[in-house]
Design a binder for these strands. Structure first.
Lengths: 121, 121
DNA sequence: CTAAAGTATGGAGTATGCTCCAACGTCAAC
DNA sequence: GTTGACGTTGGAGCATACTCCATACTTTAG
């Protein structure tokens, strides 16, 4: 597919798509005779994944490393598996921290609600 | 305490501390007669919390909203509680997404390990 | 053939979150 | 009273992640 279709299907602007390509996040981009970019079907999922990970707070560099490892079955399985394990440990640590934050928020919410009931009437 | 002590105790540079103050993240900063900043003991925890939340991918704007709500027992309990509830829902959603990412990583790790065993020998 | 729509490139500009620096005021010690 | 450590401000500069633009080429429709 061409860039406008990928733009439409992912909701990501063409400028950003070209930027991602330049940053090595989209590696399977071909060119047709007229020098137009030609994206494989798969690109839709790849872009979606980049956006999801980015929304979760990963930097483009981290995302590139992760996507590269996902492709690494053609390169080096053992190393790819190790990257996955490391990334996953990071994600798990982040989940635990977020759970602590959530608990704190819950506690504060309860405190403020109690305070509202006491003062409010 | 003065800025150098807060810098030492939090590991956050004075430039950043002043920047955070300007952005409304540190509201309880006094001035002594000589115009030096005077931080309450509490500032250490506040700065640590900012850093933790930032590390988890929150923007300074989000963090400010959250810290403001934490202080809101002196302002508006009911509204503060509502902010907490909203923020917490966001955090919970993020946790679920990260769990999905973790599951994906685990699955890919397993696949690559299997692939390594098959090809490797 | 021409106009409009689509694409390409390089480079400038923007927002966020710092980071560094120059110029200057304050204070304790010698 | 001067040196040196510590503090102040305003503004410039930087990295990341876009976003916009001018210019130019290609393709499609009329």
């Amino acid at each position: 597919m061409r860039i406008s279709e990928l733009e439409r299907r992912t909701g990501v602007s063409r400028d950003t798509l070209r930027y991602y390509e330049k940053q090595g996040l989209l590696r399977e981009v071909g060119r047709s005779g007229n020098n137009y970019r030609e994206y494989p079907e798969q690109a839709v999922d790849r872009v979606s994944m980049v956006r999801q990970l980015k929304g979760l707070g990963f930097s483009l560099t981290e995302i590139r490393e992760l996507l590269d490892a996902l492709r690494s079955d053609r390169i080096n399985c053992r190393e790819g598996a190790a990257v996955m394990a490391r990334k996953r440990a990071g994600v798990e640590a982040r989940i635990r921290e977020l759970q602590a934050v959530s608990a704190l928020l819950e506690q504060q919410q309860a405190r403020l609600e109690a305070s509202a009931r006491a003062h409010g009437l």
